[in-house]
Amino acid sequence: MNGTVEPILTVEHLTMRFGGLVAVDDLSFSARPGDITALIGPNGAGKTTVFNCITGFYKPTVGMIRLAHPDGKTFLLERLLDFRISQRARGSRTFQNIRLFQGMTVLENLMVARHNPLMLASGFTLFGMLGLRTFTNAERAAIDMAKYWLDKIGITSRADDPAGDLPYGAQRRLEVARAMCTEPVLLCLDEPAAGLNARESAELNELLLFIRAEHATSILLIEHDMSVVMEISDHIVVLDYGVKIADGAPAAIRDDPRVIAAYLGVDDEEIADVEAEVGT
């Protein structure tokens, strides 16, 4: 691999225990800037736990998670409070079960994502109360950014409808757009294609590829849908029972016998046979 580029995300020796259960065991991997990195593995492999550690919902038992900005600033995520990860370190995420603000409109959802810049522009509410220009300008800019993303995900016409009223696929895309409105350096997507039909899934792929192409945002995603993973990711990390079993480019992962074994549930002894079959 290209060792000259500094990785955007470096996870080192990450371990997460819940009581006696080891959900993630000494996991190390890194994600390069501009890449779409996929974290895959069978159910219960610990993928979401890794996400929760990266985005600050869990404090890892052991380990270090470093996020490096293109300008050289680095953040140790395991030391930051969850909201600071989005605010300072610019790591944003979506959820497996969509977490939109259902009772707020689509536009409001995107405006909430602009909370921090708007708070600053409103002089922590004071300028906003007075209706000063700095705030109204910032608000207009936020609406423009929202419009941009609404256009990209194709729901501009529904901007004033409650988010809970959107079809499922649009809700998924809105959640991605909302995360993008925080202008993240790293976007973590937890099974963004779950429950989508083929067409919606294709639309989502397009959106992710657009983000990679047009924005300085690297993507880390958890996904079950192999067609999505293989089609769009640049780099894949495979977890099984909290342990990394493979790490590499999609083509290499596709043929990795350990990955096949993990997915098909083959015993350890049989891996040798599988390896022989695949011809490695």
């Binding site: 919902f57 909201f83 603000f101 909430v112 708007l118």
Partner: peptide
Amino acid sequence: LPIGRAWEALREDEIACRTLGIN
């Protein structure tokens, strides 16, 4: 204002608020 919108967002989903950088 952003603060009021954040209140309502908090009522809707606190966890989502935190991922959007809201204290």
